[in-house]
Amino acid sequence: MNRRVRRWFFLICACAIFGLFVSAVRQMPTFGHYRGPYGDILNRETVYERHITDVVTAVNFDWRGIDTLGEESILFLSVIGTLVLLRKPSSEVNDSHDENDTADKRKGREIPLPSAATRVATLGLVGPLVVFGLYIVAHGHLTPGGGFQGGVILATAPLLVYLAGDLKSFKRIANHETVQIGEALGLLGFLILGLPGMIRGGAYLRNVLPLGTSGHVFSGGMIAPINVCTGVAVSAGLVAVTYVFLEHTLETRLRGRR
């Protein structure tokens, strides 16, 4: 098919799908009206059942915790997949290191050194960002947020270090091995946290910890520890992917700096 035929063919089919979709949407409940009992029950029951104040977190880590395990595995496998797909072909391992002139330099582009303003701003942000990320992770069961969101925020901290031009520190923080261990440990932690419920005769991921008082940091039973594991896994996973992408650039730049 050439481009034009393909475009028209696709457009006609897409219009047909869209027509079907629109006629289907017209039968949906009107905007802002919720029909099912599921959400109502969860809204009503969660605070009594789990002593936590954020129902969404309870859905993610308790009512439907097994979904979250699956989703984290998706993240884990994506990271592993990226590592596999971006690995250096065995033929290039040796000859890629002898390049004294990087592509950047050769084209007359100097390796950009961040300005003092950037350095101050970014490095100054690292501390608050880490605290904020930890806060989001630790208060997942009390306020909006949780391991996923907090994990991403935490993962941006090393990136700020990179932006500040402190490549050595970035390399030290985001070192492959350490990060991967962190990710796998976070996931293993999640998986293991589900086991006691199974051993004590209930089912996998059943709560075994005391529930505490709702509104306190130590409440909600296993939701908080699972949240922390998720935060570790997510932040580590994201850092790992970023590092793989930046690794090559990093190597050449670090050599150039010396």
């Binding site: 909006p144 949780g146 996923f148 969101q149 991403v152 925020i153």
Partner: peptide, 22 residues
């Protein structure tokens, strides 16, 4: 839906574009 909004901002506005940029 503040929870979803937070996820959307961290993932959709930060992580996803970051991956694309990289």
């Amino acid at each position: 839906a503040p929870d979803v909004a937070l996820s959307q901002i961290t993932i959709g506005a930060v992580a996803l574009p970051l991956m694309f940029m990289l």
